[in-house]
């Protein structure tokens, strides 16, 4: 190496430091910085999804081995996140069972215990708040849900002149939410429960828009559940913790009802207004109610959704 080329390169660099090359360099630097900044969230990708979850198969195509692997992953994830070892299962619908819910509007006093029993059972986000059940306070003489108020903060319930109508997923026989899902992440099982695979949902919220009962909820942010309020008894299609950007809704407490138990909202109802069971069993309470009681309301019946949720009056 001799001195002259370096001298000449010095010269050229001096000469090249024109306004044009400075701007070009600054623009390139700025552009690269912006690109890096825009890609930075990718560094946090592991918080959102794991490779294993990303490569997971569609629920209906999973073999028992695949499912066992997935359940192990979910168990480990929940334990890492909440410090509680959950009991996660994949519960299949039972043969000869179709679930029906009946709610006695004569009895409901609007105490909202079902709302909070559901929250305690199903691990929805507490902050921001997600609740599956909305108790509408309705003036007597109308079944128009537009007249309902779900934010009532009365000192005492029931108030004279009003009745209370809890609304949650109606588990339609003809569910509009299932039809609009572009990725088949939600479907109706043979026991009548419309389920969501939270690992398959892409968060497009079409189902939320399609549901005439305002029953589906979206996780706008990462759900927050205090550790001491986490229910460790979980099901894959049921109450396992959700992540940001997926839909959720009432699933008739799959983790309870598919092992023969009553849903949490029913057990919490202090007046026994909620009745649940297998409509294919003529001896069940719901069969008795549909046989013996007179007035039934399937909410927004005219939509043709054919809900499996029946409202009735005693007298």
């Amino acid at each position: 190496m001799n001195a002259s080329p370096s001298n000449s390169s010095d010269k050229t660099s001096d000469a090249a430091m024109s306004r044009r090359s400075f701007l070009r360099g600054a623009a390139a630097f700025g552009g690269l910085t912006a690109l890096a900044a825009s890609l930075a969230p990718l560094l946090k990708l592991h918080e959102f999804t794991s490779t294993e979850e990303f490569l997971q198969k569609y629920y209906k195509e999973m073999t028992p081995d695949d499912m066992a692997r997935v359940l192990r992953r979910i168990t480990a994830e929940v334990e890492r996140e909440y410090g509680v070892r959950p009991h996660v299962r994949d519960l299949k619908p039972m043969d000869g069972v179709e679930f029906i819910y009946a709610l006695n509007l004569t009895r409901c006093i609007g105490c909202r215990k079902c709302v909070h029993a559901c929250v305690a059972e199903n691990n929805p986000s507490l902050n921001p708040e997600i609740q599956y059940i909305r108790v509408l306070k309705m003036p007597h003489g109308s079944m128009d849900v537009e007249k309902g108020d779900h934010t009532y903060a009365d000192k005492e319930v029931p108030e004279k002149g009003f009745f209370y109508m809890p609304v949650q997923c109606q588990q339609c026989k003809n569910p509009p939410c299932v039809k609009v899902c572009p990725v088949n992440a939600t479907w109706q099982e043979k026991d009548g429960i419309t389920v969501i695979d939270y690992d398959w949902c892409i968060g497009c919220r079409y189902c939320e828009a399609a549901c005439p009962y305002w029953a589906r909820r979206f996780n706008f942010t990462k759900p927050e559940i205090p550790k001491d309020r986490l229910n460790p008894d979980m099901a894959y299609l049921g109450n396992r913790p959700r992540k940001q950007g997926v839909m959720e809704k009432c699933h008739f407490c799959i983790q309870r009802t598919r092992v023969g138990r009553y849903p949490a909202c029913l057990e919490a109802c202090p007046v026994g207004a909620r009745k649940f069971g297998n409509i294919l069993d003529p001896e069940s309470e719901v069969s008795y109610i549909l046989r013996e009681k007179r007035v039934f309301i399937q909410l927004k019946e005219e939509m043709g959704t054919s809900p499996r949720f029946f409202y009735y009056f005693d007298k």
Binding site: G260, R261, Y262, E267, K275, F276
Partner: peptide
Amino acid sequence: RDWEAGAHGRTGGYWDRSKGAA
């Protein structure tokens, strides 16, 4: 009559009587 059929009053436990008691 409703109470005897399980349609009046609170219930809990198991809807599936083969799995447990209500």
